[in-house]
Amino acid sequence: MSCLSEEERGLSPLFMEILAALWMHKGSLGGFKHFPERPCLGQKVTREDFCSGYSDFEYVYMTILGLAKLHSLVEEITLQNNGQVFTRNPGVQLLERACGMTMHGDREGANALLRSAPAALLEAFQVAKSSGKMLDFFRNAFDRQADPCLEGRTSRLLQYLEKHRHTATTMAPWEDVSLQRLPNGASSRDIAGEHLRVFCNECTWLWSRQRRLSYEDAKAARFGSDANLAEDFARVFNAQTFREAMRARGVVRRSPSVQWEVQVENGSWAGYEAEASAAIEAAHSARTNMLELRLGPRGWKYVIDLGNKVQLNPKTRKSRPIRRQEAPISPSSPSSPSPGSVKLTEVELEEAVQFFVDMQTLPPHPP
């Protein structure tokens, strides 16, 4: 796992395993062509660009990373998907910004596709691992020359599964490792509890592989009567590892928070919407100089030039200054129905951790 970046370490371990396996075949899949050292998500890439300017390794890497991001944001994206075309659909716009791909959100079954796509990747990988043909999986379950929309990428994975699904897999049930939408008014403790449920099941899956158990057997044994097994499970599932995972995954709101702003006509500064500001901040942190964003209700395309600190309209060539502002954190929004979209403060996280420790739901520290 040493080849993974800090951002990638914050992903679910189910997807980290796929990325780590992909690195083993970097040379066979063309290595680096577009990126100098590590593929990342910045903007949607067209099929023509993928065909001419990217390697198979980079395409597969970006697909895995995009589906991993979708896994963590699926509740928020489906909540915002209003069934309209891209320019009027905030859910699909969020999918493009965060996951580097788009889809037809106005078609029937769009939300079902959003929920099933990451699961298809995980199942296909487990099938490939069981068969021992990992390079074949990376070559045949992904197609750099096909339509790079979510529908096209998922279709390729499903075709692979149709051909190879007879191989048994040991993947954890999707509902066990996916955040579920919470009712309005959910408290910070409820939000932390939903993250804890998923984290516990992820740890169970990892532990099952270490102990060479099936996932269901590991689930039965993790808190069972065998004290030795329960103690061994506490090595991976405890308050310390839970805190680390929540921080790595961006669940904990950092202080101070960052807001990117653009200078408007009267010389004042206007803040970007939260997702756009987060995308700019991610590019800033990754030292990426150029970023394309679709902004406003019509989804107009703009180029963010972080080197020169300007927002550029590629059609009119008009530019506006931008700036990065640090501000005190604001309280988390407990009314949000999507736990993946809510940021907890350090205080809220610690209060929740202590509650679950006191309830003997979460071991306080490794044995």
Rank of each mutant, 00 (worst) to 15 (best):
153 R>L: 07
33 K>G: 06
138 F>W: 01
256 P>M: 00
130 S>N: 06
101 M>S: 00
155 S>P: 01
165 R>K: 15
136 D>E: 15
146 A>R: 11
26 K>R: 15
345 T>I: 01
14 L>S: 09
136 D>L: 12
145 Q>M: 11
134 M>P: 04
317 R>S: 11
153 R>H: 03
29 L>R: 01
188 S>D: 11
7 E>C: 00
362 L>Y: 06
71 H>K: 14
139 R>C: 13
341 S>W: 00
58 E>D: 03
137 F>H: 01
15 F>V: 10
113 L>P: 03
363 P>I: 07
153 R>N: 05
188 S>N: 08
38 R>E: 08
2 S>M: 11
57 F>D: 05
346 E>A: 14
199 F>M: 04
217 D>L: 12
7 E>F: 06
34 H>M: 13
172 A>W: 02
297 P>I: 06
45 V>G: 00
233 F>N: 04
320 R>H: 14
44 K>Y: 14
246 M>L: 15
181 R>L: 11
239 A>R: 13
178 S>V: 09
288 T>Q: 15
342 V>Q: 09
129 K>S: 08
302 Y>K: 11
307 G>P: 02
340 G>Y: 00
317 R>L: 12
250 G>M: 09
14 L>M: 03
303 V>T: 13
284 H>T: 10
7 E>I: 06
129 K>G: 06
120 A>C: 13
63 T>Q: 11
224 G>A: 15
322 I>M: 08
173 P>E: 11
159 Q>A: 14
248 A>M: 01
361 T>H: 13
286 A>H: 08
19 L>T: 10
263 Q>N: 06
231 E>I: 08
198 V>D: 10
133 K>D: 12
272 Y>S: 05
115 R>N: 14
232 D>S: 14
356 F>Y: 15
341 S>T: 10
337 P>D: 06
196 L>C: 10
214 S>H: 05
236 V>M: 10
40 C>P: 03
320 R>Y: 07
294 R>E: 10
270 A>V: 07
338 S>Y: 03
239 A>I: 12
10 G>E: 00
184 N>M: 11
114 L>P: 05
22 L>P: 04
144 R>K: 15
294 R>A: 09
366 P>E: 08
139 R>F: 04
266 N>G: 06
292 E>Y: 13
237 F>I: 05
313 N>Y: 00
239 A>G: 15
97 R>G: 09
65 L>E: 01
342 V>K: 07
276 A>H: 11
100 G>E: 02
59 Y>I: 04
68 A>P: 00
341 S>V: 03
163 K>S: 10
150 L>W: 00
309 K>V: 05
25 H>C: 13
197 R>F: 03
101 M>W: 01
130 S>Q: 13
123 E>S: 10
362 L>S: 08
363 P>D: 08
86 F>N: 02
229 L>Q: 15
174 W>M: 12
283 A>N: 00
25 H>S: 07
142 F>T: 06
95 L>V: 08
48 E>S: 12
298 R>D: 14
37 E>Q: 12
92 V>S: 07
218 A>D: 08
318 K>G: 07
28 S>I: 03
324 R>M: 05
298 R>Y: 13
367 P>S: 08
126 Q>R: 08
76 E>K: 14
7 E>T: 10
153 R>K: 14
201 N>K: 09
243 R>E: 14
24 M>F: 02
204 T>R: 12
67 L>R: 03
67 L>E: 03
201 N>C: 10
269 W>Y: 12
174 W>T: 14
349 L>Q: 03
150 L>E: 03
56 D>F: 01
58 E>W: 00
109 G>C: 04
